[in-house]
Design a binder for these strands. Structure first.
Lengths: 206, 206
DNA sequence: ATCACAATTGGACCTTGGTCCCATTCGTCT
DNA sequence: AGACGAATGGGACCAAGGTCCAATTGTGAT
């Protein structure tokens, strides 16, 4: 399972990088290590990582800021922090920001591995989720504005007749739009369309 | 808004209890304070709280264990921890367990208030969510097993005809069950039924 | 044994949804 | 000008959903 899973390590301490790299490779991960936040940002491949292992205290950006910067760039990979000089407020802040684990050096190998496994699993789930959503969104993009309008009303449970009244058009026309919505959204049934729309945030209000 | 919102404070240090109580009352909360985990557990009113403010280190159960015990009893109120003797692993553990905030003594009044407000808001949201779900579940409880079966297939997008085939009964019978499902679930449309079922964890697999 | 409820179905009928073919009217893009 | 997508619908039809009245059968509870 952990076959080609990539873990990116960022730490300015070469000894730590080597130790962590070796440990993770033994567990079957593909590891890339960077000596600084700048290095990984320049590489620009962070979104291929399934997990980040970050030193908190680094020159330039600290680990938290690096995660924030990656988020800005659309990379939302789960992170595990390791640090030698931690205090409570910092650890709390990191956990609030969504860190999977926050470890103090020296850390127990087993605990790091467990944290990485959890982060990788979280990444896998989120990735599947995002891909599914992106897929649905790309289909929705193909809808004309009128079709979108009709879809919204359909998934709110209105009858074609009511939709027609609300839009000031003939019921016949609603049927045409509705048919195209089903086709473009690749929905095999109204139930499926409702779920698709739900993931787009449509219809679950009120 | 913070009118009759209840905050429960548990701390074995009377001075802290008094200070926190006074601070929160000034902000408009109804405050109940307890000198020990046992005291609040015996009172058995914890689920009326919108927020917990807990000392981490207390005789008997510590704050984390108290939260866990309350969870076991079905009380899932958001908690804010305050403590004088914190270490990083403990704070991380608390945050992982879902703590809203983890503060070290002496704490800044403004920060505590902010944390309490956030916890109260989280409680409000979760409460609304739970109530909505409980409502739906109570309706679903009124379904006969056959009706439940039919509902599952309906929200999966199957036609009455297909449902009939799968259950080995007449399409006519499916219609009857289906009608009763709509009635008992108080669904005004198929779209609504799909959403109700979705909240019950039905149909959104695959 | 009797009652209430669940499950089942028939028949009749009406409403909705969905699809085909075809046609018109606007804008936009080439 | 001509092509094209989008929006709009008429007519015809068929499939699917929904409802009313009525009836049978089985099962558990009183």
């Amino acid at each position: 399972m952990t076959d080609e899973t990539a873990v990116f390590v960022v730490d300015d301490d070469e000894l730590v990088r080597r130790a962590v790299t070796r440990l993770l490779k033994l567990d079957g991960y593909r590891v890339e290590s960077y000596p600084s936040p700048q290095a990984i940002l320049e590489a620009g491949t962070a979104d291929s990582a399934a997990c980040l292992v970050l030193d908190l205290r680094m020159p330039g950006l600290n680990g938290l800021e690096l995660v924030e910067e990656l988020r800005q760039r659309g990379v939302s990979t789960p992170a595990v922090f390791i640090t030698g000089h931690a205090d409570v407020p910092t650890s709390v802040q990191a956990m609030k920001a969504g860190a999977v684990e926050f470890l103090e050096k020296p850390f127990d190998d087993k605990i790091l591995l467990k944290a990485v496994r959890e982060a990788v699993e979280r990444d896998r789930t989120e990735r599947i989720d995002r891909e599914g959503l992106a897929d649905i969104e790309s289909r929705a993009k193909a809808l004309t504005s009128r079709e979108r309008e009709v879809m919204n009303l359909v998934v709110q449970g209105l009858l074609n007749k009511q939709i027609a009244g609300q839009l000031g058009i003939a019921e016949k026309t609603v049927k045409v739009h509705r048919g195209r919505v089903m086709e473009k959204m690749e929905a095999g049934s109204l139930a499926e369309l409702v779920r698709l729309a739900g993931r787009l945030g449509i219809g679950d209000s009120g």
